[in-house]
Every structure is written in structure tokens, then in C-alpha cells.
Computed example of a mutant assay.
Amino acid sequence: MSGTAAQRRAYTVVGGGAIGGTIAFHLAKAGHPVLVVDQDTEHVGAISDQGLGIRRPDGRVERQPVRAITPDGADALPATGGGLGAVVLAVKAQATDPAVRWIAPRLAEDGFVVSLQNGLCEEQIAAEVGERRTVTAFVNLFADLVAPGLIADGGAGALVVGELDGRVSPRVERLVTDLRAWGPAVAHPNVAGHLWSKQSYSVVGATSALVDVPIHETIEAHPDMTVALAREVYAVGAAIGVHPESFDHWEAGAFAVDAHLPYTRQVLADFCGWLRTQPKNKTGIWRDLAVRKRPTEVPAMLAPVLRLADDHGINCPGIRTVVRLIGELERGERRMDESNVTEVERAVSGR
């Protein structure tokens, strides 16, 4: 190993699925020592035996040697001079609490946890490790865990990193430099604005999982519902002083209450056109329901929004309906069907 490689920061990636696995692969490829910690023993075994694989859109599979363990295997961790230094947390939103409880006693005093998750998980993380050791981030990529040890490449996406107080600190700058091994990572003073914009899109993505069609088809068939759902999220964010940021082709300004309707419709059309170019046309929520037959992260992901809506007296009938319907799908009480989307449409229109 060269002197430069030897100085590269070591990373522990907790949650080796679509997001965590993608980041772990690229960090390792760039020469960083990487440890993946994941609950799935079959996934961990495949990574240990074959390396962590990325399947490119043309079908090529690249593999990178990466060390992987389950949380129970933590006793085998080597001494690290005071604990884990840089931790990338990439578990599903509902797994945040147990994951952070696992991390906290192992985290170095000068270490940190950066959340590359869906939802608003930083408050839970900071409650365990402290705000000083919590870094906030927004990530949007279209990867998929398609088999143990193998992730389908999601192509270029967006990754924004910052401190909880909005500073772009030296550790954020270094982290961003490292994460550029994956793609276009940037430091930004308003990560919260990006996270709330993703929440607005995530509600729409969750709605698309209520019926077995690509995301863009749901938006194109139900543009007014899409706008109404996004506005519910943005209204709650505005109540706590969040200034929304745009990402990819999701233009936050198009969902303002006073936005010019032709502008909003054009933004939705452009966004759907961009979605058509992506290698993945359905959400991880859909995959959890239709393929993996397991609970989704939707209730945990949207719980902070609904809690804040209650605190500020904001009505969110669309979000509440989506969460309820997802729960019924998880429990096998209903099937993926267009009538589910119609129910959300009725909720946002007050019918």
C-alpha cells in the first residue's frame, strides 16, 4: 500500500444495502479501508466470499474486496485506537435507533456519524452520540440491492453534506472529498432544505408504490395529487423555518402555493422525463412490498413530518392516507391497485 493510500480515512458503513453498499464500494475502490456492518447474514457472507459487487447498466459486474460483518461480529473488530472514527449510517429509517445504539459505545470521542438515509434521522442519531458527533447529509441515488453482495448501479445522483448548524467545517470538506469517489458530492449550509424536498418527493414515491407502475406514470396520471402531497410536506417544513432546496430535476419552487400553474406542470413534465432516463423506475418502497415482502420505511420516514404537523396544527390528509395504505399493504389487507391512488387523490382534494 502506498503512503497516500495508508493515510486514507477508514470508514465503517452500517447498512450495506443500495445506498450504503454503493458508497462502500466506491470508497473501497478509491483505497479507503472499509468495513460493512449489516444484519443480513447472507449479504455479509456474499461480500466476504466474493467481494462487494456493482452491476453496471450494461450488465458488467465489478467487485471490490470489502470486509463485512454482522453486528454480532463486532467482537472481532480490531483495536482502532479509540473506536470507530468515520461512520456512514445507511440503514432503513425504522432501524435507526438500534443501529445507533450499536454504534454509540464503539464510536471514538472524535468520531462522527453521517446519515445517508431516507427521512429525518439526525435527531435520533444526535440523541445517542451527541450533536457534535452527528453530520447531516442528503442523498438521492437510484441503486438497488438485487442479490446478496450485488447492487445494481443507480448512476449519478445527488449527495449534499453539512453540519447540523449549517457550517461547512473542515471535517465536512474532507468527508465530501472522500465521497466524491462515488460521484458529485458537495458541501452545503442548508442540508435540511434538501432533506425536506426529498421528503416531499418521497411521499409521491410512496404513493407510486400503492400501484404496480413506474413512478413517472403515477405523477403523469395524477399531477394535481402530486402537487398537493408535496405542498403538505413543504407546509410543515415552512412552519419550522425550513427553506426548501431543489435537487436533480425536483424544483422546490414549483410547489409553492403561489407558483404559476404552467411552470409547475412544466417542472413535473421535466421531472418525469428525467425519471424515464434512470435505470430504476420504481422505488425501494415498491421493492420491499412487491419483491422482498417486508415492512417498508414509510411510517418511520414520515413520522417526524406528521409529528411536527400535529405540533403546528397543520392538516396533512394526503400523507396520513399514504402511511395508512402502505401499512395495510404491508399487512396483506389490500393489494396494489389504482384504487389506492384514487383514495389518496380523494384525501388531498377533500372529497
Rank of each mutant, 00 (worst) to 15 (best):
220 E>I: 02
46 A>I: 03
98 P>W: 07
204 V>A: 05
114 V>F: 05
67 R>F: 07
350 G>C: 10
302 L>S: 01
256 A>D: 14
41 T>N: 03
103 I>E: 07
96 T>M: 03
26 H>G: 00
119 G>L: 03
343 E>R: 12
213 V>P: 00
186 V>G: 00
62 E>V: 03
105 P>G: 00
68 A>H: 02
19 I>Q: 04
289 L>P: 00
123 E>T: 15
244 P>G: 11
34 V>D: 00
340 N>A: 10
349 S>L: 05
347 A>D: 12
1 M>I: 12
84 L>W: 05
72 D>T: 10
244 P>V: 12
78 P>E: 15
52 L>G: 00
44 V>H: 07
208 S>I: 05
349 S>Q: 11
2 S>C: 06
142 F>D: 06
191 V>H: 11
216 H>Y: 09
240 I>E: 13
226 T>W: 07
201 Y>I: 08
333 E>Q: 11
248 D>F: 11
248 D>Y: 04
97 D>C: 01
125 I>E: 03
112 F>P: 09
39 Q>N: 09
340 N>H: 08
51 G>N: 12
304 P>E: 10
143 A>N: 13
169 S>R: 01
310 D>Y: 15
182 W>P: 04
222 H>C: 05
336 M>A: 13
121 C>I: 10
282 K>V: 15
255 F>L: 09
78 P>S: 05
89 L>I: 00
108 A>S: 08
328 E>Q: 11
168 V>N: 01
331 R>F: 14
199 Q>I: 05
116 L>F: 05
267 V>C: 05
182 W>Q: 06
249 H>Y: 14
233 V>E: 15
62 E>C: 05
146 V>F: 05
281 N>E: 14
275 L>Q: 14
113 V>W: 02
247 F>R: 06
135 V>H: 09
143 A>W: 07
45 G>K: 06
239 A>D: 10
1 M>E: 13
271 F>A: 06
134 T>N: 09
247 F>K: 11
114 V>N: 03
178 D>N: 05
97 D>M: 02
193 G>V: 13
215 I>H: 02
122 E>T: 13
116 L>I: 03
131 E>W: 07
280 K>N: 15
43 H>T: 05
208 S>F: 00
151 I>D: 11
110 D>E: 14
30 A>M: 08
88 V>D: 03
96 T>L: 06
78 P>G: 09
278 Q>K: 14
6 A>L: 15
220 E>Y: 01
153 D>Y: 15
169 S>C: 00
238 A>N: 03
124 Q>K: 15
282 K>H: 13
308 L>I: 10
207 T>A: 01
171 R>T: 15
176 V>L: 01
326 I>K: 01
99 A>D: 11
179 L>P: 01
240 I>G: 07
172 V>A: 02
131 E>I: 04
257 V>C: 04
341 V>F: 07
303 A>L: 10
118 N>H: 06
